[in-house]
């Protein structure tokens, strides 16, 4: 199994209060899955994402990523895991404002070890081509549209060929047309073998995925194939969008 969470809890301490963001999550995700994580605001989606992305360590529980215990790793080792196995896409893009699209995409290679250092320019061009921005390499973020910015961010997350692509509300700042474009891109990546996990509020987004995990108050409330999830009723629409796009 690519990802295996056992009894993961995350407790935040704020003053004398404790917030249980995750209350014992068990979860397995295999290679090449396309997963949506849903749930109301404050249900723990981002917290779970951060744990999956090794940005944050759980308070308790075990997390095996590619059979390695990440919950026991130190800051340096976690940084290497993030660099080599994880691609993160954020709601607010998080591009460096003064760097060109190409330089933004190259960023992870600056912190890479061994093989991943090589040909960074060439690989950055390839992934930018892949997300359809071959003609925008030298543009700076303020010269790009929101959708284009998110494509640059996706290209950046793909640079080091991550084992999992994590996207926390990637379309939260985008209009519906652009959202459809980005989702089509995720689906295409998925078809090429990429494991993708998307956090979203919107059924329209979840409907593009194959599996929907619903969180409630820090626990997994349901974990169903899309056809059995309420979001599945939108499946026909999705098919239309996908056809009209490709």
């Amino acid at each position: 199994m690519l990802i295996s969470l056992r009894d993961i809890t995350k407790i935040y301490r704020v003053g004398i209060d404790t917030v249980h963001a995750l209350r014992g999550v068990d979860l397995d995700i295999g290679e090449n899955e396309l997963v949506a994580i849903m749930g109301s605001s404050g249900s723990g989606k981002s917290t779970l994402m951060n744990v999956l992305g090794c940005l944050d360590r759980p308070t308790d529980g075990t997390y095996l990523l590619k059979d390695r215990r990440t919950d026991r790793m130190g800051a340096v080792e976690l940084a290497h895991v993030r660099n080599e196995l994880i691609g993160f896409v954020f709601q607010s893009f998080e591009l460096l404002p003064r760097a060109t699209a190409l330089a933004n995409v190259e960023l992870p290679s600056l912190y890479a070890r061994g093989e991943r250092r090589r040909d960074r320019r060439k690989r950055a061009r390839e992934v930018l081509d892949r997300v359809g921005l071959g003609d925008r390499m030298d543009h700076r973020p303020n010269q790009l549209s929101g959708g284009q910015k998110q494509r640059v961010a996706i290209a950046r997350s793909l640079l080091n060929r991550p084992a999992i692509l994590l996207a926390d509300e990637p379309t939260g700042n985008l209009d519906s047309t652009t959202t459809a474009d980005i989702l089509r891109l995720f689906r295409a990546l998925h078809r090429e073998g990429q494991t993708v996990i998307i956090v979203t509020h919107e059924d329209e987004v979840a409907a593009h995925c194959e599996r929907v995990i619903r969180l409630h108050d820090g626990r997994i409330a349901s974990d169903l194939p899309i056809s059995e999830d309420p979001a599945g009723r939108l499946l026909e629409e999705v098919a239309e969008i996908t056809e009209s796009g490709s």
């Binding site: 660099n83 080599e84 912190y111």
Partner: peptide, 16 residues
């Protein structure tokens, strides 16, 4: 600060 967060998210070690 956000830039630092991003750099760490893409794999910058504390020493980098």
């Amino acid at each position: 600060t956000r830039e630092i967060g991003l750099r760490k998210a893409v794999g910058a070690t504390p020493s980098a």
